[in-house]
Design a binder for these strands. Structure first.
Lengths: 235, 235
DNA sequence: CATTGTGAAGTGATTCACAGCA
DNA sequence: TGCTGTGAATCACTTCACAATG
């Protein structure tokens, strides 16, 4: 089969770039954004790709390639205007608007998430908290009262919630996920150690603490066994 | 006498394959392990690559390729013995031993991590908790007392801690990281929204909640705008 | 002339498709 | 026969290296 999906340039230069940003690039844009914010807070007006790359912890070629997918925002011989680029990336990610999120499962982790200030400061409003346990419903966490899952649909609609965070035990995750999807949520951040099944239009990202530790353990074990730990080489 | 540096593929060229497991595969092994544990708990004795792949949320070709890096543990025409494969993967990851971890930064998230039962159940012992705030030192969380950072080195040595978890604010992260590395920790799981600089022998993995939300927001925005629809307003 | 933006080359991961074996 | 294990093909991402340019 040769249905050429060639999306070669051939694009007028007054048009905005094709919306085909590689996933790996998308995952780094928030990192660049944070680096730019830090620089901006230090009153740095202009930064080269080298400066930015260092601040973001990547190499400069990758950074330039990544930015090239968004458009032509640099100045040859000079670098990037920090605030201008910051705005462009924020817009690309969709941070020029606010996002409402709900958190389901207000145990240890749910509490921490509900109180996490990093959400609000980046344009994510926690619209509501939910728990299956009727004991917990009504409890106040931060400035929100925990709601019953039965109210999910109404709240999702009223607050135009697009993103749901699942912080339940593994066993409850799929059920909660189904309810979120049913209520109209189309992006899910899953902290439960479970594989979620969702319809095609729903995006799921997984954060799994014990998996991260296990990956570290694997490498740790190899170091201990004495295989020359020659990581991504010098030279 | 023996040059400690050049221990390449030295003496371990016995029966097992060269230990060059791709990073992407390593990251999935814990997922397979969990799927196998679930199957084992349901008294499933044998599973095909198709069954396993479904349980793990990947496709079967990828799963078979991944497992082929570990060795030849399946039976053609039959599938995999669940418990046998489970043990092989656990051994490969290094979970046949226990790992001591320390958590630094006992705020909201640190508390949640300290109480997270998923660590212990997978062979990760929390050996100690630390906080820079002297007010917090001595406070009891779970069954541990928060220690002062000054005691880090002693505790790391005594408990043979290999893995450190950083759950501090961004501003404190690099300093804490340096202290962990100085104390002898060589794997770090970083929850602080900061880029860490470490010596080459130290492994860092990052978990960043707000980055995950931003990635979801990007895709969410794309869905909302429809794929061809271009907003006006770019130069 | 310092630095961007980008084709081209290089590297790594995924998927295909089927040979080989229980 | 059914299913694994794996070369070969494909796809995705990274890095190189340099022409274009403010």
């Amino acid at each position: 089969m040769t249905s050429a999906r060639s999306r070669k340039s051939g694009r007028a230069r007054d048009e905005r770039p094709e919306r085909g940003i590689p996933e790996a690039t998308v995952a780094r844009l928030p990192v660049y954004l944070r680096a730019l914010t830090t620089l901006s807070d230090s009153d740095v007006a202009t930064a080269s790709s080298e400066d930015l790359a260092t601040a973001a912890g990547v190499n400069s070629a990758k950074l330039r390639k990544d930015l090239s997918y968004l458009g032509t925002y640099g100045t040859r011989g000079v670098g990037y205007d920090v605030n201008y680029l910051r705005y462009q990336i924020a817009r690309e990610i969709g941070l020029t608007q606010d996002w409402s999120v709900v958190i389901v499962g207000i145990g240890n982790l749910g509490h921490a998430l509900a109180n996490y200030s990093g959400f609000a400061s980046r344009g994510f409003q926690v619209a509501a908290l939910f728990d299956v346990d009727p004991e917990r419903v009504g409890e106040v966490v931060g400035d929100l009262k925990i709601s019953a899952l039965a109210d999910l649909e109404v709240i999702v609609r009223e607050s135009a919630v697009a993103i749901g965070v699942i912080a339940t035990p593994a066993g409850a995750a799929q059920g909660v996920c189904d309810q979120l999807v049913e209520a109209g949520v189309s992006s899910i951040l899953n902290f439960a150690p479970a594989v979620l099944t969702v319809p095609g239009h729903v995006d799921v990202r997984k954060v799994d603490l014990s998996i991260e530790l296990q990956i570290l353990a694997y490498h740790e074990q190899r170091k201990a066994h004495g295989f020359g730990a020659l990581e991504a080489g010098a030279l």
